[in-house]
Design a protein around this nucleic acid. Sequence first.
DNA 1: TCATTAATTTTCT
DNA 2: AGAAAATTAATGA
Length: 232
Amino acid sequence: MDDSVKRQIPGPFIPESFCQVDRLEKYMHLGYTRVFPKGSIVLSQGMESNVIMYVQSGCLAVSMGADDGHNKFLFHIGTHSIGMATFLSEFHELQIYTIKNSTVCFFTVEQILKIFHEDEQVILDILQNALTKVYYFMTQARDLNYCRPSSRVFRLLYNLCLNEGKQVGGYYVIQTKLTQKAIGEITGTHYVTVCKLINILEKKGVLKKTKDTIYVYNLEKLKNMINEVLDY
DNA sequence: TCATTAATTTTCT
DNA sequence: AGAAAATTAATGA
C-alpha cells in the first residue's frame, strides 16, 4: 500500500484541532481570507453556509444552542485545522466564534474541488479530519450513556496523561492550560463538580493540577478510580 | 451522586 | 483594578 494512504484515526482526546490540514496553507490565495478579533462570531445560528474554513492562526470554538438557552460546547478548531460549515441550511443550530484573535481562510465548495483536483492528499487530510471528529463524538456518546460524571473526568485526565504525559522521575508531567471550566465543558459535568473531583484526587495524592501543568503521581490509582463509586 | 445557585476568595492579565 | 477562575456551602433531584 502507498505510504501516503496509510493513516490512523487518533484515539479519543481533547477536542482541539483534531487532525491538522496545514496542506491548505499553500492554497490560501484561492480562498477568501479574513481577520477576526477575539470574541467575534464567525458563524451564527441560522446563517446558511457552504464553506470550509481554514484557521491560519488563532483558535475558534464551535458550540450548539439549545431551546432552553443552554449552549453546549462541542470542540475547538485550532491553528492549521479546519471547520466544515458546508451544506448548512437556515435551520442549523451551530455557532462558531473566535476565542483568540484569528485569521481564517474561507473556501467555497467550488474552490475546494479545484484544490482536490490539484492535490489529492488534501482530500485524505480533510477526510481524516472529519472522521476523527466523528470518532471523537462516538466515544462521547458512549461515555455520556455509560459513565458517571466522575468517571468521565477521571478518564479524560487518564487519557491526557497517556498521550501527553512526560515521565520525570517517579511521576508524570502534563503540560496543559486546561481550566476546570474547560474540563467541565468537555466532559459534560458541572465545573463545581470538577473542582470537587480534583480536590479528591489531590487529597489522595493521585495528582496535582496547577495553572499550566498537571502532575500525576499515581497513574495506576487514577486508572482504577475511573470505575470506583466514591462518596463526597 | 451530581446539578445548581449564590457568595467568597484566589489568580490572571 | 477588573475579569476570570476556583473554592465552599447549601439545597434539591
